[in-house]
Design a protein around this nucleic acid. Sequence first.
DNA 1: AGCGCCATGTAAGTGGTTACATGATTGT
DNA 2: ACAATCATGTAACCACTTACATGGCGCT
Lengths: 181, 181
Amino acid sequence: MDVKTVCLGMLTDGKASGYDLKKQFESSFGHFFAAGYGSIYPALSSLAEQGLVSCEQILQDGKPDRKVYAITDEGRQFLLEALKNTTPCHKVRSEFLAMMCFAHLMEPADVEAVLENRLLDIERFNSMFEDIEATSMHDWPQGMKFVLGFGKAIAASTQQYIQDNRHLLVDDTNENSAAAQ
Amino acid sequence: MDVKTVCLGMLTDGKASGYDLKKQFESSFGHFFAAGYGSIYPALSSLAEQGLVSCEQILQDGKPDRKVYAITDEGRQFLLEALKNTTPCHKVRSEFLAMMCFAHLMEPADVEAVLENRLLDIERFNSMFEDIEATSMHDWPQGMKFVLGFGKAIAASTQQYIQDNRHLLVDDTNENSAAAQ
DNA sequence: AGCGCCATGTAAGTGGTTACATGATTGT
DNA sequence: ACAATCATGTAACCACTTACATGGCGCT
């Protein structure tokens, strides 16, 4: 399942432009499936070429034409086929965790900073989540709620784990004991 | 932080061959930072070219020569520099979650199968973790324990979440009520 | 006789990222 | 005035994946 397929899926919810889809990637999808213009626009062109989406060109004066895409019957069929894969992958690529493996080689202040930044990232995610809950969550399909709840649950347990275990990485009995005197 | 840097980090723990590093990627690192031979061997060659590791070639009859790499002083310095980045990223790319967003378009049996496979994956991870705990965990640096604990915590809360919320995706009141009669 | 482990590598391909190019409109 | 938003795209690049190539040893 690549960016193309996800775009196709998003279009089952109604017509949209590449710009619209980007916004959806930024908000709801971003935390588990990132995509920028550089992958979205080519994806839509390619889908149109294959006849999986149709494109309605809306002329605007000044601005570039707005291209609104809609899923076709062939597209819907293709999507359903793709959704029959019952072993989708779930990959994590974390420089953060890789780095923490080598925490003993780092300066304690830097380890602290890394943990702090990770927590800030999670805070940002939580804000995003609250925004979504406050605005657009009502008419969403169950799957969407499941996925957002998933993100929320992982965020919460990550927060908890870092707070409970940061002492493993920066043991105050050592190197950082200047404040003790 | 790419595969090269992680290999360099692994070598702070002692000499190793590409084959050895692969095993380490498969066990402890695999769940948050995957790498295959196709990235490890070129990474080591490149590190050797840059003088960040040295290579001792051990001749073996029959088998190809075993190449054992060791980190150099320059390598250590380079690594410490790389570890000063206090905003490492943590990316998730989940076909699983993307798919679940469109659960309402899928056949309930397939949704069920996808969830089941996700749970099996987590089971496999837990087994791996127990293996590690039973064998090689003693002499590990704290960071490693932190990271493995992290994986364990996320795995547990994922399991919990799926079990608590699968009903959102496959509502038994609907389509699947054949067994009711 | 065959499988799995040890052991190294290359070449082609893939999929996504980053940077660039363009430019009007709307709000502060 | 200046920034942000709307709006689309391309080209070069990058890092990693997949498939291929080779081959002995030890166990069952």
